[in-house]
Amino acid sequence: MASSSVSWRPTASIATLQKRAELTVAVRSFFARRGVWEVETPCLSSATVTDEHLQGFSTEFVGPGAAQGRTLYLQTSPEYAMKRLLAAGSGAIFQICKAYRNEESGRWHNPEFTMLEWYRPGFDHFDLMQELDELVQLICSTEPAERISYQQVFMQHVKLDPLSCSLAELKQAAAQLGHGELAAAETDRDVLLQLLFCDAVEPQIGQQRPCFVYDFPASQAALAKLNPDDPRAAQRFELYFRNLELANGFHELDDAGEQKARFEQDNLKRRSQGKQEKPIDPMLLQALEAGIPACAGVAVGLDRLFMLALAQSSISDVLSFDVGNA
């Protein structure tokens, strides 16, 4: 958090930063032992994500070949570039890099943060949950994680089936939790699902041990395959521990046509909300057309993982400098 008296001093203690360095080494050797190699991809890219709820930063490149200036976007995650590597035959890869997301700042958010992302050809999302669980156990000394489907956990705590209930039922459930005004004006099912999940589900799960929630509603599939047994759900998972969302993973969508349709759908939603449409990344679509191996991939908020490993209560406590004194 920015304070009125901004200090030049690091927001984390030097001791914490040293421990953080040790943990980063442990993460790297975890992957080295498993034959997953480290890659670097550009932070600046000519395209960005169309995600309705992700706001990217952009900047202007001026130089040879771009005398008039060319817009470059700071990555919100290295996903697209890493998928292009997969399509080019990289095999299993991981990356530790900075990701940039505008409008996100608070106790658990910094607009610039460190992301760990990796891809495993031949894995589905359950295999990858297992591997992530092992990493979290190593870094945070946790017990093995629980696993529960989105539908199950939502029914348990909200008493509604998220895959079939009506908008009116969601509004009513939100109103019962004291969100009457917000709910009354809301027409988007997903916003209400997210509100109820944040408020009624997240605080109830992953308190003693981490908790995987998998098979999110298809409307929140992002870049995940749909569940072949129940296409109302997507093969996407999230990992929660002590009120923090730590990771998001997919059994990766590898169908270029379907991916393009989802991007266009995102842009339609953006337009209907008066937000700016985003250019769809043609390079990613070409790579998907060329073919990526069947794989699963996951992105982990490394700062948050370290917060938990080091028992810190805010993201600033593990950052050298947060956005308030960067």
């Binding site: 709820h53 996100e104 958010h109 916003v191 997210q194 944040c198 929140q220 999230e238 969302e245 998001n248």
Partner: peptide, 8 residues
């Protein structure tokens, strides 16, 4: 500030 993964 709270934000669910990839959500509102």
């Amino acid at each position: 500030y709270v934000k669910p993964g990839k959500g509102q």
